[in-house]
Amino acid sequence: MKVLVMYVDEFSYQPAEKNLEDVEDITEGAQFSDSILAFIQVEESDEEKDVKSREKKLVNHLKWTARKNDCKSVILHSFAHLSESKASVEFTKELFYLAEKRLQNADFTTAQTPFGYFLDLNIKAPGFSLARIWATL
């Protein structure tokens, strides 16, 4: 799994193009402030491991990043451009669902960007050391 995490002062998206036929139709965007934005690429090799172990590894990384940025809001964004390897849609969606639930149980405010869409993104992110962290998990 590859993860690019950014602390964002402001983040918003608007659905631009649906790229998976069997996902629900979404036309509304959303906006957030003071959040951790996680661009997540779940890879095929992740499916060889237990989904709960992958979810725990991801959530621990996101919680660490949030603590370093004094933040309690996390946005999960499936971003299939950090690696050539891709996990199945089903595995990725399950991992995101489990990660979001674990974060909520730890008193984080969470959101997911629409799965199966290309999105118009607006990002305002400050330029300091721990505002952007890339990791292979």
Score class of each variant (00 low, 15 high):
73 S>W: 08
32 F>Q: 07
30 A>F: 06
51 V>Y: 04
39 F>E: 10
29 G>T: 08
25 D>W: 06
33 S>K: 15
17 E>Q: 12
24 E>C: 04
91 F>C: 04
80 A>I: 00
32 F>C: 07
16 A>I: 07
86 K>Q: 13
49 K>A: 12
37 L>A: 04
41 Q>N: 15
69 N>W: 10
77 H>I: 06
54 R>M: 04
20 L>Y: 06
23 V>K: 08
67 R>C: 07
80 A>T: 00
70 D>H: 15
68 K>N: 03
80 A>M: 01
67 R>E: 15
57 K>R: 10
77 H>A: 11
15 P>M: 09
55 E>A: 14
89 V>G: 02
42 V>K: 08
20 L>N: 03
53 S>Y: 08
42 V>G: 01
83 S>K: 05
66 A>R: 04
63 K>Y: 00
71 C>M: 03
30 A>G: 10
87 A>S: 14
55 E>F: 01
44 E>F: 13
25 D>L: 13
39 F>N: 02
91 F>S: 02
15 P>K: 06
19 N>A: 00
19 N>Q: 04
23 V>A: 05
75 I>A: 05
59 V>Y: 09
90 E>Q: 14
43 E>V: 12
55 E>D: 09
25 D>C: 00
34 D>Q: 10
59 V>H: 09
21 E>I: 09
28 E>N: 13
82 L>R: 00
33 S>Y: 09
62 L>R: 00
24 E>G: 13
26 I>D: 00
54 R>Q: 10
45 S>A: 12
17 E>W: 01
19 N>M: 09
47 E>D: 02
54 R>P: 00
86 K>A: 14
59 V>K: 13
20 L>V: 08
24 E>K: 14
74 V>N: 04
69 N>A: 07
23 V>E: 08
73 S>D: 06
46 D>G: 02
53 S>M: 08
84 E>M: 03
80 A>N: 06
17 E>S: 12
40 I>C: 05
83 S>M: 07
49 K>Q: 15
89 V>R: 11
89 V>K: 15
33 S>H: 15
60 N>I: 01
53 S>T: 13
48 E>K: 14
71 C>Y: 09
46 D>Y: 04
55 E>W: 01
49 K>Y: 12
37 L>W: 07
26 I>Y: 00
21 E>K: 14
29 G>N: 07
47 E>L: 01
35 S>L: 07
29 G>Q: 11
86 K>H: 14
63 K>I: 14
53 S>W: 02
29 G>A: 06
82 L>Y: 01
52 K>H: 12
47 E>F: 06
49 K>W: 04
41 Q>I: 09
84 E>C: 02
19 N>C: 08
60 N>Q: 11
33 S>M: 12
21 E>W: 03
56 K>P: 02
80 A>F: 05
88 S>Q: 07
90 E>V: 10
55 E>S: 15
36 I>Q: 03
57 K>L: 11
71 C>T: 15
27 T>R: 10
41 Q>V: 08
